[in-house]
Computed example of a mutant assay.
Amino acid sequence: MEKIYIVAGGPERLLPDLQEANNEEITWVGVDRGVIYLAERHLPMAEAIGDFDSITAMEREELQSRHRGLKIFPSDKDKTDTELAVDWAISRKPGLIRIYGATGGRLDHFFANIYLLMKQFESSIPMELEDSCNFIKLLPPGQHVIKEDDTYPYISFVPVASNVEGLTLEGFKYPLENRHIPFGSTLCISNELIHHTGTVSFAGGILMMIRSRDETK
């Protein structure tokens, strides 16, 4: 099934190796300066979306000559460029949507991009956000199996928008059993698996899982 990877225009230094992520199942979408990032890596774009206010006139002219399907939106609009790209991706009904280039730089855009992941609950399409040091996804109530991943050894859980009820962590260095986690709590920051897999279960709320590694590694 098709997977859609969106590359937004966040700081380039925070991008992971996009070439490594590429395969025949991937449909690439460039957003604003993310179009430049994809072009420089010779990755094919199905769509190029944005107001392109973060690139020079010369870069924009070159992009238009290379990519006839460039979708240019006005700067004054009701949705961010990244949300426009996510909505386009949802319309394709893929098996997965992953967003790169959505962290670092302006905090307002970063928080907006985190909350774009909420669209997975309306669309029933899994969504993820990844940069060079972090992997983020939102978990609905229920039980989730978390597999060991040496790339991201640290695992944090953060309530999103509301409290999380009945959180149980098994197979982790710091286990929990049926705990109420209030919105804004830092209790579940920086945990680690102690087995090859662990389980996360909770009865209510939405949990953001952040898998991380140290930037120096």
Rank of each mutant, 00 (worst) to 15 (best):
M1F: 03
E2Q: 12
I4W: 06
I4C: 02
I6Y: 08
I6W: 09
V7M: 06
V7G: 02
A8E: 06
P11E: 08
E12R: 14
L15R: 12
L15V: 03
L18Q: 10
Q19F: 01
Q19P: 00
Q19N: 15
E20C: 01
N23C: 13
V31A: 03
D32T: 06
R33N: 08
R33Y: 04
G34E: 10
V35C: 15
V35A: 11
Y37K: 06
R41I: 04
H42L: 06
A48M: 04
I49V: 15
A57W: 01
E61A: 15
E62G: 00
S65G: 05
R68K: 08
G69Q: 09
L84D: 05
L84P: 01
A85D: 03
A85T: 10
A85G: 03
V86T: 07
I90V: 14
I90C: 05
S91E: 11
K93W: 05
P94V: 03
G95C: 08
R98M: 14
I99M: 14
Y100C: 00
A102T: 02
G105P: 12
D108W: 12
H109A: 10
A112T: 14
I114V: 15
L117R: 08
Q120C: 13
E122S: 12
S123A: 15
S123N: 07
M127K: 10
E128T: 07
D131W: 09
C133P: 01
P141C: 13
G142N: 12
Q143I: 12
Q143C: 11
V145Y: 04
N163R: 03
L167H: 05
T168L: 09
E170R: 13
F172D: 11
E177D: 14
N178Y: 09
I181V: 14
S185L: 06
T186M: 05
T186R: 02
S190E: 06
E192I: 05
I194C: 04
T197G: 01
T199S: 07
T199Y: 00
V200Q: 10
A203Y: 03
I210D: 01
R211F: 02
E215T: 04
